[in-house]
């Protein structure tokens, strides 16, 4: 089972990034082999549709689970279409990727069954 987590940098001790589409990188961790790899997020500076682009990217790399602090409606729909399970990271705590993976493996994270925000598209910052 491959798990994708949005991160600030590129190793297991880096902090997770609370926003899925705009993360700097993704760490994809394989629970069977315990091997992992970091990939720069191609959607990081996208003008729009970052969630859709990031969802396509991680599914291409075989992720079946995503842990994020936030799932917008388009990212949610795209991930759901790919059969990806979504789990919510606690955004009020500062956790490393390693700590977050431990919480997931202990069954402490909640699975998401709907988008967790109304979407960023058309927000003022996008001009």
């Amino acid at each position: 089972m491959k798990i994708a987590i949005p991160t600030e940098t590129d190793n297991l001790d880096s902090l997770f990034h609370p926003r899925f589409g705009r993360a700097v990188s993704f760490i994809i961790f394989d629970t069977e082999t315990e091997e992992w790899e970091a990939f720069p997020n191609p959607a990081c500076n996208s003008h729009g549709g970052a969630g859709v682009q990031a969802a396509q990217f991680i599914t291409k790399h075989g992720a079946q689970v995503v842990i994020s602090g936030d799932f917008g409606p388009k990212a949610y729909n795209a991930l759901a279409a790919g059969g990806v399970q979504m789990f919510l990271a606690p955004v009020d705590e500062t956790l490393s990727i390693r700590e977050l993976l431990a919480r997931y493996q202990q069954g402490q994270l909640n699975q998401v069954s709907a988008p967790t925000n109304p979407g960023h598209h058309g927000s003022p910052s996008q001009g």
Binding site: H47, V52, A55, Q56, T59, A78
Partner: peptide, 12 residues
């Protein structure tokens, strides 16, 4: 604009 996506066996 990432307005069309192919994910798994689905196109959105």
């Amino acid at each position: 604009f990432h307005a069309i996506a192919v994910i798994g066996q689905n196109i959105l």
